[in-house]
Amino acid sequence: MATILAVIEHRQGVIRDITFELLTLGRKLAEKNNAQLIGVLLGHDTQSLAESLRTHVHRLLVADHEVFSDFNGETYQQSLATIVKKESPFLTLVGNTAFGIDFAPSLATQLGFPFTTDCIGVEMVDGRIRVTRQLYDGKMDAHVQLAESTSYVLTVRSGICPAEQGGLSAEVEKIESPVVSQPDHKRFIEYIEAVVGDVDITKADVVVGVGRGIKEQANLPLVEDFAKAIGGVVACSRPIVDANWLPKDRQVGSSGKTVKPKLYIAIGISGAFQHIAGMKNSDTIIAINKDSNAPIFNEADYGIVDDLFKVLPALKNKILEIKK
């Protein structure tokens, strides 16, 4: 029977959310194409992890070895190369995450399989794979057809296939670890936790997020004054942290913090999916952006299409008036 293989992503003893999304996508594709879904778990002390996966896959391959105590893209690549060759799935699914992109493109290249990355949609048409990808700052989508092959590798974006219950009951199949030591040329040393600052943006009811639309560091007080008036904390998109205008602990998004305030106001933020990932569960989202086509307006509840330098002072005054 044809098989689809999904690589289980976990970190520091916890299975990452993307795994259950990937397995849901894998089950759907398997169902449509009369195939079986195989989960591959590479880890150490994997018993409880494996237990939580059994209902999600038809088969669960587990290589339990010390070498997988911590993530090393190279050990993953070499192990998966062996496993994929042996199982010969027609499709290997990996999350488009810091974990997945460190080994999936090079794995596919090593195996000589067509692959593509950051898919937001996957279909099988006549035994070939067609994916949907996002281009140009989220302003365009594209259909991409993969070259004809017996096997493909895809990385899939987080959040595109909400996780569902599995309803299956795979037995754990222990396999020998294809790799038993870290390679000399790439060694994992340690994880370094993100630094904690003075303000915890995840605790605030009102979060005022500022993006590159603010143009200059000198304009930041405008946002700070506004946040003060409304009683919120200032957070930001990644470019503001990259430029060192605000500390890292103020960054909202996939490589920053996830916030769920009662109100999130996005100011001069375009709405890249990495940013959206960190604020989409806010109760109410208001976006201020001069570009009516900015993707942020697909996520916000209320939109203001205008120059932030005009809107912010005016809105601040209205809020102060109401407060009085």
Binding site: R130, D141, A142, V144, Q145, F297, E299, A300, D301, V311
Partner: peptide
């Protein structure tokens, strides 16, 4: 090459915000 781009299309509009209209003062 691995892949061929078949075509571009505009992303489906999601829940789409309610756009507040009027002068800056009215919007505020």
């Amino acid at each position: 090459s691995n892949s061929t781009l078949e075509g571009l299309f505009l992303p489906p509009v999601g829940k789409r915000a309610e756009i507040l209209s009027g002068s800056t003062d009215e919007i505020s």
